[in-house]
């Protein structure tokens, strides 16, 4: 991202500096509702250790979180809660749909389950699998970091 110049200093753009800082300090909010939660826990625990990616610090209040991990089946009864949690998060924020249930409703094609959480809130990364393996989650996490790094900042000088 930057260039090391003579005399111990680095040049970069402010945009990529912000992206770099953000992608290695992901505070996540785990919205865990179903069986996928077990695999999420396995990913978070020492064996796979998402702390290596700077995403180890889970926050249990949406006001302190950057990334919303939606893990497990979301029912229509729960949908308003998920929306409220998303709205309570401060910008910048990202959403990860973890598992088939959150992507399409999965095997629950019925009256109860929401057929994909992107019907409720916008989603950045989808992780397929029922449940996804921890490797898949880590892969998605790295893709999310890439996305955060490449994000264009919205500030511009106004006349």
């Amino acid at each position: 991202m930057g260039k090391i110049r003579e005399g111990n200093f680095v040049t970069t753009t402010l945009e990529s500096l912000i992206g770099w800082a953000r992608k290695y300090s992901i505070f996540q909010y785990p919205f865990v509702t179903a069986c996928c939660g077990m695999e999420y826990m396995a990913t978070a625990a020492s064996h796979f250790d998402i702390d290596r990616f700077g995403a180890g610090l889970t926050r249990f209040t949406p006001r302190q979180a950057d990334v919303l991990f939606v893990v497990g089946t979301i029912s229509h009864k729960l949908a308003p809660v998920l929306k409220k949690v998303y709205e309570q998060m401060t910008e910048p924020k990202w959403v990860v749909a973890f598992g088939t249930c959150t992507i399409t409703g999965g095997i629950y094609d019925n009256y109860a389950a929401v057929q994909g959480i992107d019907a409720i809130i916008p989603v950045d990364i989808y992780i397929p699998g029922c449940p996804p393996r921890p490797e898949t989650v880590l892969d998605a996490l790295m893709k999310l970091q890439e996305k955060i790094q490449k994000e264009k900042q919205k500030w511009a000088l106004r006349k």
């Binding site: 308003p80 009256y111 929401v114 994909g116 019907a119 809130i121 916008p122």
Partner: peptide
């Protein structure tokens, strides 16, 4: 497959 959403959805299910 009839669902009854409680909130307005961004897309049809």
């Amino acid at each position: 497959k009839k669902s009854q959403p409680r909130i307005k959805l961004l897309r049809s299910e």
